[in-house]
């Protein structure tokens, strides 16, 4: 019974974190699925968005959840601009160079943050930060519950966007057949940048949901990029459902690993899954053979 009382909160917290991981990974998997880009700067952009949310709260007093309509479009615009102005230009369309360009971007963003904002860990304390909800004896912090629900809602909206709109249709067409899409008049460069922008917008939404129970720090990107990649390769590169399931698996692994192995070694669990999946089943759980 005591076991269960420790286990249940760990599981619920793991699921809540997992939902946000899934949201971050959805952005990554969308970018991969359409552009075939492994966006190494994904975590760094999340870190940047976390700082954005942090400063909106501390300087302007805007609640993280109410910051969604500001941060999401801003991150979308940043993603769109990055793809058109930097990534597409600097890589000359060579796939092996794209990874290096996004690696360069992530290094710039991470260290820019370190330079500007130093290595202090920054947290916020909105009034609801320490309120909890009772789930059959397990008390889960309100921000965790909100992030869980919010991440699922955003995921649903993203799914609708991809499945039910003309833009989504163009994105899906491009993901499947680039030349064919071009032939029927789809503006390839524009849709590529739109996809990248939407992927980064997901990161913006994740940052708003995450900050009340998390922190802003220049090293966040480094942590998250591996987590996001693990989720994506676990679920299968380019797979939506895979990213969702993968997110929950990784969230649970992390929270249970931390519980049983301690904070530091607990982190290894994610890497071990990452390496194991890459080695034994690089197509992931839901991916198709390339």
């Amino acid at each position: 019974m005591l076991e269960f009382q420790i286990l249940l909160p760990a599981i619920l917290n793991g699921l809540a974190t997992g939902a946000v991981y899934a949201l971050v990974a959805l952005g990554l998997t969308l970018i991969y699925g359409v552009l075939h880009i492994v966006n190494f700067a994904h975590g760094s952009l999340l870190m940047l968005a976390l700082y954005g949310v942090y400063f909106l709260y501390t300087l302007l007093g805007i609640d993280p959840y109410l910051a969604l309509p500001i941060v999401v479009p801003a991150m979308f615009a940043l993603g769109y601009a990055l793809q058109r102005a930097v990534i597409a230009t600097a890589s000359h369309g060579r796939e092996e160079n794209i990874l290096l360009v996004t690696l360069g971007l992530s290094i710039i963003i991470d260290n820019f943050a370190l330079y500007l904002w130093s290595a202090d860990t920054r947290t916020i304390n909105p009034s609801y930060a320490f309120s909890t909800v009772d789930f059959g004896g397990a008390f889960i912090a309100v921000p965790k519950v909100v992030s869980f629900v919010g991440a699922l809602v955003v995921t649903g909206l993203l799914w609708l966007l991809i499945q039910r709109t003309d833009l989504g249709k163009a994105i899906r067409a491009l993901a499947r057949e680039r030349q064919g899409a071009q032939l029927v008049g789809i503006d390839v460069d524009h849709i590529y940048a739109m996809s990248f922008g939407i992927g980064i917008a997901c990161v913006g939404a994740a940052a708003c949901l995450l900050l009340p129970s998390y922190y802003a720090h220049p090293g966040v990107g480094e942590n998250f990029v591996v987590i996001a990649f693990t989720v994506v390769v676990l679920g299968g590169m380019g797979s939506f459902a895979g990213a969702l399931v993968g997110g929950f698996v990784i969230g649970l692994t992390e929270s249970l690993g931390g519980l049983f192995l301690g904070e530091n070694l607990g982190k290894i669990g994610v890497f071990v899954i990452f390496i194991a999946i890459l080695l034994f089943r690089p197509t992931g759980l839901f991916g198709q053979r390339a």
Binding site: S106, I107, I108
Partner: peptide
């Protein structure tokens, strides 16, 4: 951080 920032910028510029 500035040193590594330079590395990143250099990487992109060279590519």
């Amino acid at each position: 951080g500035l040193n590594l920032m330079l590395y990143g910028a250099l990487l992109i510029v060279i590519l």
